[in-house]
Amino acid sequence: MSAPSPARPGRLIGYARVSTDEQVNDAQVDALKAAGCRLVHQEHGSGASRLRPVLAKLMRDIGAGDVLVVVRLDRLARSVSHLLEVIEVLEKRGAHFRSLGDPIDTSTPQGMFSLQVLGAVAQLERALIAERTKAGMKAARARGRLAGNPGLRERRPDAVRAISAARQRAYLDDLITSAQTWLPTVRRLRPQYSWDDVVRVLNRRGHDWTVERLRRAVHRLVREHIAEPALIKRSPRRPPEDRLMTLVAGIALADPDLTLLEIGAQLERMHERTPRGSRKWQASSVKALLDRARRLGLVVPDPAPGS
C-alpha cells in the first residue's frame, strides 16, 4: 500500500439535533457557526435512538483532520458507551471530536484525558450493573425464587414478543454503530460482485463475516432505509473461470492504493492459485485479470505496477 498523503487542513463540521418534541435548533446552529463551523448538519430525532441518517452520512463523509463539533454531548450520544463508539469511529478515520459545552476535545491532551475519564466511568458503570445483577440473582435463589423474567419462563406471548423486540433493537444498534467500518466496502462491491467475494475482501481487511451474516445485516439496513436496495440485488452470473477476475477487481476496488504485487500478496494469503495453478502471484498475472475486467465493463482502478 502506498504511503498516506499528508493530511489536509481540517474542517470544523457542526452537528445539531433536536428531539421530536422540540421546535427549532436555531440556537445550536448559531453556536456552532460562532465556533467556526461553516457547515452544520441538522437532524430531528429522539436522543434514545441511533437511527439518525444525517449523522450516519456525516460519519461516512468526514475526513482525516476534520473535527465533528456539537453544542453538548447529549446532542450526539444517548449514553457514554455510544459516545465512545462514535469517537472510536472518528479516530479510525483520522478525525476529531469537540463538544462546546463540555471539556471534550480529542485534538488536545486535556480533552483526551477527559475522554479517558468518561471511559473509566462507563467501565465502572458496566461492572456495577453486572455486580448488582449477580447479587439480585443470588438473593432470589436464597428465597427459593427463580431469577429472570417470569413471563418469559411461562412463555407468555407478550413477554416473548417484548424480548424479541429488545434483541432486534440491540442488533440494529450494533449494525448502525459498526456500519461505517464495513458498509462503504459493500457499497463499492455490490451488486457487481457476489456475497462470497465481498466477504473475502472484508475479512482480509480485519473483519469476521460469513456470507449469511453479511446478507442478513445488509437486508436489515435496507429495510430500515439506511442502505440502498440496489445492494441486495442479484449479482451477475459469471462463468466459474471469471471468479478470480471478479475477486481481483473487487480487492482493487475496495483499496485503490494497493499495487499489483500487494494485490497478489493478498491473494496468496487467501490461498488463491493463479489461473495456471501456481501458488505464487506475479504482477503480470494480476494485471491480466484487471485488464480483462476492464474489457468486460467493470469499473476498477488502475493500481501502480509495484516491484
Rank of each mutant, 00 (worst) to 15 (best):
E22V: 03
Q23V: 07
K280D: 10
I62K: 14
R169K: 14
L115I: 00
Q282G: 11
K33A: 10
G144I: 14
H41E: 08
A64Y: 05
A159Q: 05
A179P: 11
S99N: 04
A170Q: 12
R153G: 06
P6W: 09
I87T: 06
L231D: 13
A159K: 05
D197Y: 02
R52T: 02
G101F: 04
A35Q: 01
P240K: 01
R200M: 14
P4D: 14
A179L: 01
L258A: 06
S46T: 01
K33L: 05
R153K: 07
R204P: 07
I87L: 14
A122C: 04
P4K: 10
E262D: 11
G94N: 07
S2E: 14
H207E: 07
A165G: 08
L298C: 13
A56I: 03
L247M: 01
R145Q: 15
C37E: 06
R295M: 06
A27P: 05
P240F: 01
A34F: 02
L290C: 12
P305L: 02
L68V: 01
A31Q: 03
L12F: 14
A170D: 10
T181K: 00
M112A: 01
L189A: 10
G306Y: 08
L231G: 10
P240L: 09
A7H: 11
E241I: 10
V201C: 03
V29K: 10
A166P: 06
D173F: 00
D158G: 14
I226F: 12
V218R: 11
A165R: 08
Q123G: 15
I129S: 15
D74S: 11
R213K: 06
R38N: 11
V54S: 05
L261H: 05
I232H: 14
V286L: 06
S194P: 00
A7P: 00
R52E: 02
A95E: 12
P103E: 02
S164G: 12
L189Y: 08
G10D: 07
R187E: 12
W209G: 08
I104A: 10
R220K: 11
N25S: 13
A130M: 06
I263P: 08
L124C: 04
D196K: 07
A227T: 03
K280N: 10
I104H: 04
K287H: 14
C37H: 07
A217V: 08
R234V: 06
E88H: 09
A304G: 05
A27L: 11
S284C: 11
L267C: 07
G206Q: 08
G119P: 08
E43P: 01
H225S: 10
G277W: 07
T133Y: 07
L221K: 03
A120W: 01
I226Y: 05
D66E: 11
T246K: 00
P4T: 00
R8M: 11
S49V: 01
A130C: 11
R52L: 06
L90C: 03
M270F: 04
A170L: 13
D66A: 00
T210G: 15
G277Y: 09
L124P: 01
V222Y: 04
E272N: 02
R11G: 13
L73C: 04
A162W: 14
A130D: 10
R220L: 10
I87E: 06
L247P: 12
V71S: 04
D242V: 13
R8Y: 08
K233C: 15
S49T: 05
R145W: 09
L76H: 00
S49N: 09
M112W: 14
G250Y: 05
R223T: 09
A130V: 02
P305V: 14
G264Y: 01
A135Y: 00
V54I: 03
